[in-house]
């Protein structure tokens, strides 16, 4: 990727536009190798209770160094604004980061964003000094509202978390990208490399994924595939694709035919 193309969020610059989750891997070693192969600079992490019966078991921070990667604490598993705000306050104390990923979920079956709770949590967090990257529905009006509140990145779902169905509504993703000026990242739903490329070709600033890499048969190779797909999609977007046409247009000149 050209050096002059970077991704900026919350006042920090990153060269990789692929953000990856750290869940669902076989073990911490596989997690570390897959993240390395993905080239990601930002990794999402969850905040959970320490296991009191075995506090000495290995921790993520021992394998994925917070000095090398930007930890992005997220609120996966929170279903109310209060729980999400509490979780991120603890995360800030655990690591000292103010850049966070907010998600408030609607129900277990769909993990679809609960937008009223998401808006309430975003407001409280921004007031408390957080820089909020927000998981949201692919609704351009809600996305604009979140930007107006002060969220630093808008992260609509491509499709349901962990579904691998790809981008169900590319038109809405494009509308969101056109309507807000903060970065837009497709979050959730990516299944394979072409989905990641599609997100980037739509003009998105980045893609966040977890299961597409972790649940692949060879997660480390898939991590590299995703890295290349995000770069390819970005380059294609910057290049400006040719217009689609109804009929053929020969690539070789017709003049001089025998």
């Amino acid at each position: 990727m050209a050096n002059d193309d970077f991704f900026e969020v919350g006042g920090r610059k990153f060269s990789s536009r692929l953000l990856v989750g750290t869940g669902k891997y076989k073990d911490f070693e596989e997690t570390a190798k897959a993240i390395e192969a993905s080239g990601a600079e930002i990794v999402t992490v969850a905040v959970r209770r320490v296991n009191l019966s075995d506090p000495s078991q290995p921790m993520l921070v021992d394998y994925v160094s917070p000095k090398k990667y930007t930890y992005l604490p997220n609120t996966a598993g929170c279903f109310t604004a209060d729980d999400a705000v509490r979780t991120l306050r603890l995360a800030r104390e655990a690591g000292g980061w103010d850049l966070v990923k907010l998600e408030v979920l609607g129900d277990q079956k769909t993990l679809y964003p609960n937008m009223p709770e998401t808006l309430a949590a975003a407001e409280a967090l921004i007031k408390d000094g957080f820089k909020v990257m927000v998981y949201c529905s692919d609704d351009p009006i809600q996305a604009k509202k979140l930007e107006d509140m002060g969220c630093v990145a808008i992260m609509p779902l491509g499709s349901l978390i962990g579904s691998g169905l790809g981008i169900m509504n590319p038109i809405n993703i494009r509308l969101i990208k056109e309507s807000v000026s903060v970065p837009v990242l497709v979050d959730a739903g990516v299944g394979t490399a072409s989905d990641a490329a599609e997100a980037m070709e739509l003009g998105c600033d980045g893609v966040l994924m977890n299961t597409a890499i972790a649940a692949a048969k060879d997660p480390i190779r898939m991590a590299l595939a995703m890295k290349l797909a995000v770069e390819a999609g970005r380059l294609a977007y910057l290049s400006g694709r040719m217009p689609k046409k109804m009929y053929a247009d020969p690539s070789s000149p017709l003049a001089g035919l025998i």
């Binding site: 750290t22 997690t31 905040v47 959970r48 997220n74 996966a76």
Partner: peptide, 11 residues
């Protein structure tokens, strides 16, 4: 008290 740490997690 709640005592928490970072664990692997995704989106």
């Amino acid at each position: 008290l709640e005592v928490v740490h970072f664990i692997g997690g995704g989106c």
